[in-house]
């Protein structure tokens, strides 16, 4: 196990980026931090800047206006940084994939390590996705 993988083993810090989501995925992410699920017990927490983050959590269908900022955010992240696409929109574009302003999904612009489908994914699903991500890294 290299130093990098060792760093991923515990206490993942997450930067959450809403790239055109309907709020639901974002609310479920916040729900994970609240008393019922409380992932902060395991050292997983949301941080205010991607420069502090181990994981970039992207929700939403990625409208055109967000693309440059999405790519820039990913480039600013210290590597290795795992990217998680959250929700149906983030994974495939979902119901919005035929829209004229749709420029996604997320993996069209940045490499994605894990997909968490669902509209919205339940907090349990989000936690399960992160646990599987830790196992994979």
């Amino acid at each position: 196990m290299g130093a990098m993988n060792w760093g991923f083993k515990k206490s993942l810090w997450v930067f959450h980026l809403n790239a055109g989501a309907c709020n639901n995925c974002d609310i479920e992410v916040l729900d994970c931090l609240c008393p019922k699920y409380d992932v902060e017990r395991f050292g997983i927490k949301l941080v205010g800047s991607v420069k502090h983050a181990d994981v970039l959590l992207v929700s939403g269908s990625v409208p055109r206006k967000v693309v440059p900022q999405l790519v820039e955010t990913f480039e600013q992240a210290p590597q290795p940084c795992a990217v998680v696409a959250l929700g149906s929109c983030g994974c495939t574009g979902g119901i919005f994939k035929d829209g004229y302003n749709f420029a996604g999904p997320v993996d069209k612009h940045i490499p994605v390590n894990a997909y968490i489908p669902g509209c919205p994914p339940r907090p349990e699903a989000i936690i399960d996705g992160i646990v599987k991500l830790i196992g994979k890294l």
Binding site: A21, S61, P63, K65, I95, F96
Partner: peptide, 25 residues
């Protein structure tokens, strides 16, 4: 403009039953 998804046009390309699922989102 970062969350603009083109709902109104999408709604015009879906049936009434599908529209309900779209406007929920």
């Amino acid at each position: 403009g970062r969350v603009h998804r083109g709902m109104e046009l999408l709604a015009q390309e879906k049936t009434y039953d599908q529209d309900i699922f779209l406007v929920e989102r």
